[in-house]
Computed example of a mutant assay.
Amino acid sequence: MTYIENIFLCMVSPLLVAALCMGRRQLRLFLFSIAGMGVCLLSAYINTFLAAVCQADALAATAEIAPVVEELMKLLPLVFYLLVFEPEGDKIKAAAITVALAFATFENVCYLIQNGADRFSFIFFRGFGTGAMHVLCGLIVGGGLAYTWRRTWLEIAGTCGLLGAAITLHAIYNLLIAYGGAVQYVAYALPVLLVAAGRLSVFRLSRRK
């Protein structure tokens, strides 16, 4: 049995200490990191509860329940940030990526503790793949929110659309992972390639300007 709340406490404690020692500019980074790990912890509890209530098998829980719960939970800190502080577009995107990155980090640590870290090649691909997938979903949601929340008529519809896109990407990734075999490694590589392609496109556009 893995006591993920104890893992959460151990990982968050240094961040809290560091947050107290850093200035206000860096405080936002630590708070969103803690929020990302916190929603990952809550997602694990909610996933387990819903899987038990719906009597879902492993595949259904992985491909149908987890993507919806996890992407919705990652959205909550961002919506709170938008409603209370009304930040600029760049800050929204940075917050979304930070939450996603912290979520992926906590998820990977829990996976390592539960399943062991003896298979280096598998852990290597999984670490990059899962991290890139969550960051990619964060980029979709964060970049989209930065645009839609500047237009009142787009706030609700735009947020729902972005959430749906992130859930779909997450579900496809989880479904490919659940298939196993070579397909699993394709799934790990896919978000990494998408993030790399996106960065390359941005770099080329910036050079043209």
Rank of each mutant, 00 (worst) to 15 (best):
Y3W: 09
I4V: 09
I4P: 01
I4F: 13
E5G: 04
L15S: 09
A19N: 14
L20C: 15
C21E: 02
R25S: 14
S33D: 07
A35W: 00
G38S: 06
G38A: 10
G38F: 00
V39H: 06
V39Y: 00
C40A: 13
C40S: 06
L42M: 14
A44V: 11
A44P: 02
N47P: 09
L50V: 14
A52R: 02
V53I: 13
V53Q: 08
Q55S: 13
A56R: 00
D57S: 07
D57Y: 07
A58R: 14
A58H: 12
A61Y: 02
A66S: 15
P67L: 07
P67Y: 09
V69Y: 00
E70L: 05
L72G: 15
L72S: 13
K74H: 12
V79S: 14
V84F: 06
F85A: 05
E86N: 10
E86Q: 14
P87G: 02
E88I: 03
K91E: 15
I92S: 02
A104E: 00
A104N: 10
A104H: 02
T105Q: 05
F106D: 01
R119Y: 04
S121M: 11
S121G: 06
R126C: 00
R126V: 02
R126K: 11
G127R: 09
G129T: 03
G131I: 05
L139Q: 01
V141H: 03
V141L: 15
G142T: 05
A146E: 07
A146C: 11
W149D: 05
R150Q: 13
T152L: 10
T152G: 15
L154I: 12
G158D: 06
G161P: 04
G164W: 12
I167F: 06
Y173M: 08
Y173S: 06
N174G: 11
G181F: 11
A187Y: 04
A189H: 06
P191Q: 07
V192G: 00
L193E: 02
A197Y: 06
G198H: 12
L205C: 11
R207V: 09
